[in-house]
Design a protein around this nucleic acid. Structure first.
Lengths: 225, 225
DNA sequence: GACATAATACCAACCAGTTGGTATGCAGGT
DNA sequence: ACCTGCATACCAACTGGTTGGTATTATGTC
């Protein structure tokens, strides 16, 4: 009496926006709260009651929406990734027609959003996978998936820029995209250790400089095929 | 009746090696166990009993040597850092007379030791500071200190190499040393997400290439002052 | 009244830390 | 040598607060 339970209402038909039930709002509150609490204290130390308190709800509501703490964490990972996607899609750099500018703009943008307290800009996925990679395979898989998807979006731009600016270079767009994610995750760790975003910004300066050398301008620019 | 307790025997006179008390051996066992367990499951999820079981001792022994779980974690951080220092000091690259070779050798060496299971090569400090930076200030401070000390050792070599190969470049040895630590920490996160060290090795290839471009050979080599 | 949502009350397992006890080693006095 | 006093090292059993999860009840909406 555990496996097949409720499929919950989190994934509704996307029905009437205002009137009916405020369930979507509560589910969203819980997810936002979970993201914030887990970013602050990690997955293991984040108690269900912490998340409920942060959301202004009780455990009754929590276990109505999620089968378990682990399921909530996985949903929170998806929620976090969706929010991130929306944020980067909306950022001005992403509408540049030049792929190289989009790559450098991405790094600049990531540097620009290093504002406020640490839980506001650090990565939920990197935080969770650190503790959960061995003991919670489902969480590891979710983090892997969303990190890889995010890297994949960046890889597209990198590949396009490489085709034009460094078509013969030995490195692959995939490894460069993953490398940038490693720099980001590591920058967050250093920011946490130092209790401030400055180190992270310095790291992103190095990353930007690296991309500038990987994608040199003005030498036999290759046009599109 | 809490603050002033034992000062323990961990720091003994360094007396007779074999006969007397086997306390040092047990303390070391507990520290090794703590490092392993925390690297596997993180600080919060690591139970004191897990550490004791791994060490083949009981909780009585644990709380004889450490005042609390947190104190053990801090001692484990110091233990880990000391072990790491010894490892890098013993590595062949560190005896090269050329500073640039030592910097590149460091990255190569870090890539070479990405062997075995994940808890065997990931960084205890980065793992702990992720969860503890906000809730356990003492742990954060310890991780900050040992990460910074390790970066400082690298910084010395980088500074020497920069003076010879890129004296006028805008970047600082300090930021480059911290950047390399960020890449490492991030590489470990990706390795955990992907359940294998390959991504991490790819990241270190990028880092090595970056250092090669930061420290170009053969252009107006500057001699020592 | 059927259904979804959410609150209250509760439980059983878990776990950091405590207690009290035993074993061992090391003085120094006789 | 032998005893005594004291500190260190360790163990087994216990405790009390915590916490994920459940059972039950209440409220609002079609």
């Amino acid at each position: 009496m555990k496996a097949v339970k409720r499929s919950a209402s989190v994934l509704r038909k996307a029905g009437k926006p205002a009137k009916a039930a405020p369930s979507q709002a509560s589910a969203r509150k819980l997810l936002d709260a979970a993201v914030h609490v887990i970013r602050s204290k990690g997955y293991s130390a984040a108690r269900v009651e912490d998340i409920c308190a942060e959301a202004g709800l009780t455990k009754g509501a929590f276990f109505h929406h999620f089968d378990s703490k682990e399921a909530c964490a996985i949903a929170a990972a998806a929620h976090f990734a969706a929010n991130a996607d929306a944020l980067f899609d909306a950022a001005p750099y992403s509408r540049s027609p030049d792929a190289r500018a989009r790559v450098l703009g991405y790094v600049e943008f990531r540097k620009a959003i290093l504002k406020g307290d640490l839980p506001q800009f650090t990565c939920l996925l990197g935080t969770m996978v650190q503790e959960a990679y061995d003991s919670h395979p489902a969480i590891r898989a979710a983090c892997d998936r969303y990190i890889s998807e995010h890297a994949g979006r960046l890889e597209t731009d990198i590949a396009e820029a490489k085709a034009r600016h460094a078509p013969d270079a030995a490195w692959t767009p995939e490894s460069a995209a993953l490398y940038s994610q490693a720099v980001l995750q590591g920058a967050f760790i250093l920011a946490k250790a130092r209790h401030g975003p400055k180190v992270a910004a310095d790291c992103l300066d190095h990353l930007k400089y690296y991309f500038e050398t990987l994608l040199p301008v003005g030498e036999a620019e290759h046009p599109g095929p």
